[in-house]
Computed example of a mutant assay.
Amino acid sequence: MVGFLGTYQVSLDEKGRLNVPAKFKGLMDKQYDNPNLVVAVMPDKEGRKDREYLIAFPQEEWLVNEEKLSHLSGLDGDDRNKMREIYAQASECEVKSGKILIAQHQRERAGLKKEVTLVGMSKTFEIWATDRFEI
């Protein structure tokens, strides 16, 4: 399986929508029963707010990762904090006419303005504010 590959520059429109690159959209249509996404805010490991970004999961990939999260203990404070950090900032995104609407709170957390960089990461893709993205 060839997954999400490459780096793409796209623009957000005034409503916070972005065009999914044709190669990403084609892969989603071909390999996944449900072409919609779950978008999650990924905090920086060092706690820097200026390094947060988004990860877009096809719903089937989200379920695989959710299974891994389900093994965290809801009674352990550190595990619960990790779960909260991910679930509280995640949202489902419908792909309509090749576009996805990024929730306002996610755009703010990730620092998304007009120019956005999408980065293929095999089974997911990242959504970065272009001025935050570094290889």
Rank of each mutant, 00 (worst) to 15 (best):
F125R: 04
R109L: 13
V116T: 09
V95I: 13
V38F: 06
P58C: 09
M42R: 00
D13G: 04
K82T: 14
G98Q: 01
E60A: 15
R51W: 13
D29T: 14
G3I: 13
L27Q: 08
T7H: 04
R84C: 03
R48K: 14
F125T: 10
R107G: 09
K15N: 01
A129R: 05
A22K: 08
V10I: 11
M83Q: 11
L5S: 11
F4I: 07
Y32N: 08
W62R: 01
L101V: 14
V20T: 08
G3D: 03
I135D: 08
K25L: 15
D79F: 04
S97Y: 05
R17Y: 03
T117A: 02
I135F: 09
V2N: 00
H71V: 13
E66I: 11
V64H: 07
L12T: 11
A103V: 10
G98H: 04
I86L: 11
M28Y: 07
T7M: 05
T117R: 05
E92L: 09
I135M: 03
P58W: 02
L12N: 02
K99L: 06
G77N: 10
W62M: 02
G6D: 02
K99H: 01
N36H: 09
P21K: 04
V39H: 03
K96H: 08
N81F: 14
K113F: 09
G3L: 10
R84W: 00
I55C: 09
D78C: 07
A56D: 00
T124E: 01
T130P: 10
D44Y: 01
W128M: 03
G6P: 13
K49T: 13
Y8E: 03
D29L: 14
F4C: 03
Q59M: 04
G120S: 10
K99T: 14
V10L: 02
G74F: 11
E52T: 15
F125I: 13
V64E: 08
S70H: 10
V95L: 08
D76P: 15
E67F: 08
Q31H: 07
Q9C: 09
D79R: 05
K82C: 08
L112I: 14
V119K: 00
E67S: 14
A103W: 01
Q59L: 02
V64T: 15
K82H: 05
H105Q: 08
L69R: 03
L63D: 15
E115V: 13
K96M: 11
L54C: 09
Q89V: 04
V116C: 08
P35T: 15
K30D: 10
D79K: 06
M121R: 07
L118Y: 00
I127G: 12
K49R: 10
T7Q: 07
K68W: 02
T7V: 14
K45R: 08
T117G: 03
Q9G: 13
R84D: 01
S122N: 11
K96G: 12
T124Y: 01
